[in-house]
Amino acid sequence: MTYAFTHRGVRTGLEENTLIAFQRAVDLGITHLESDVHASADGTVYLFHDETLDRVTDATGEFSTFSDTQLAAVRAGDEPLCTLDELLDAFPHALVNVDVKDERVIGPLAELIERRAAHRQIALAAFATARTTAVANLLSAPIRRSPGQREMVLIWLCAHLFGWVPRRLIHNFWAVQVPLKQGFLPVATRRFIRAVQRAGAQVHVWVIDDEPRMRLLMERGVDAIMSDNAPLLVKVLGSQA
């Protein structure tokens, strides 16, 4: 059975990664939330994608230079910004997949996970595996992770050339998180999905917002789909036998 991730929450405008955006997803019955994390100048972990505030807020400048007091006045689509603590408080039974966006958030994120004993509630992802490894090395218990781009290239090559993935490439990872295609190159093929699953990891595909591709991935047996269109994804997944 395929399950749903909401990608930065359900939004009608610029309120991505805000508490109300994730509340809408949870109200649909979604229990797997995807977000991005940056640290403020005070070392607080926030849900935020970009390096700067410019695109989705009423402020401008580099996120990491703003204090918590300054960020409290910032609005994204008229909504306040949300810390990871606030999200975990609001949805204690959700699994939160966080993209570790840069090195500055590594220490604060690890401190938060340890303080809250949130090792089973949070999963780590990043473009570079070194960032998730750095967080994991600061923790007192194992945590779910997905590989970065370099490892994914090796996994993809093994899956498509040989039809199998060596367990040594994947044994540290809970899931691989990939696009359906990278440019014209197919990634989440049936062969790839089966090879990764046989090696012991899940396959999550992002970001899928239309019904034909959702159904294609369900038919291929993908474990999870990340989407900006959570209402549609919930509807389509509801048709599973």
Score class of each variant (00 low, 15 high):
residue 69 T to I: 15
residue 84 L to D: 05
residue 52 T to M: 12
residue 29 G to P: 03
residue 102 D to Q: 01
residue 84 L to H: 01
residue 47 L to V: 08
residue 55 R to C: 13
residue 17 N to M: 03
residue 50 D to V: 03
residue 92 P to L: 05
residue 102 D to T: 04
residue 69 T to C: 12
residue 107 G to D: 15
residue 33 L to C: 03
residue 21 A to F: 00
residue 37 V to F: 00
residue 102 D to A: 08
residue 20 I to F: 00
residue 90 A to L: 12
residue 82 C to H: 05
residue 44 T to H: 06
residue 80 P to Q: 13
residue 28 L to K: 08
residue 17 N to H: 07
residue 38 H to A: 09
residue 81 L to S: 03
residue 66 F to A: 13
residue 91 F to L: 07
residue 81 L to H: 06
residue 81 L to N: 02
residue 57 T to D: 10
residue 100 V to Q: 04
residue 72 A to H: 13
residue 51 E to T: 12
residue 53 L to P: 13
residue 49 H to K: 06
residue 84 L to S: 03
residue 94 A to S: 15
residue 19 L to Y: 01
residue 84 L to V: 00
residue 63 F to N: 08
residue 13 G to F: 12
residue 25 A to Y: 05
residue 25 A to W: 10
residue 76 A to R: 08
residue 51 E to N: 15
residue 87 L to E: 03
residue 55 R to F: 04
residue 57 T to V: 12
residue 106 I to K: 08
residue 98 V to F: 01
residue 37 V to N: 04
residue 34 E to V: 07
residue 16 E to M: 01
residue 75 R to S: 07
residue 101 K to D: 05
residue 57 T to K: 03
residue 84 L to N: 02
residue 40 S to L: 08
residue 105 V to L: 09
residue 28 L to V: 14
residue 35 S to F: 03
residue 92 P to D: 01
residue 63 F to A: 02
residue 32 H to K: 07
residue 94 A to H: 14
residue 37 V to H: 00
residue 93 H to L: 13
residue 27 D to H: 06
residue 69 T to S: 15
residue 97 N to L: 13
residue 16 E to T: 04
residue 48 F to R: 11
residue 16 E to F: 02
residue 81 L to Y: 08
residue 67 S to M: 04
residue 22 F to D: 09
residue 98 V to L: 06
residue 90 A to Q: 13
residue 94 A to E: 13
residue 43 G to T: 06
residue 87 L to I: 02
residue 47 L to M: 12
residue 50 D to H: 09
residue 54 D to F: 12
residue 75 R to H: 09
residue 41 A to L: 15
residue 31 T to R: 14
residue 30 I to D: 06
residue 17 N to D: 09
residue 71 L to S: 13
residue 18 T to C: 07
residue 65 T to I: 06
residue 88 L to D: 03
residue 48 F to H: 15
residue 94 A to W: 14
residue 69 T to F: 07
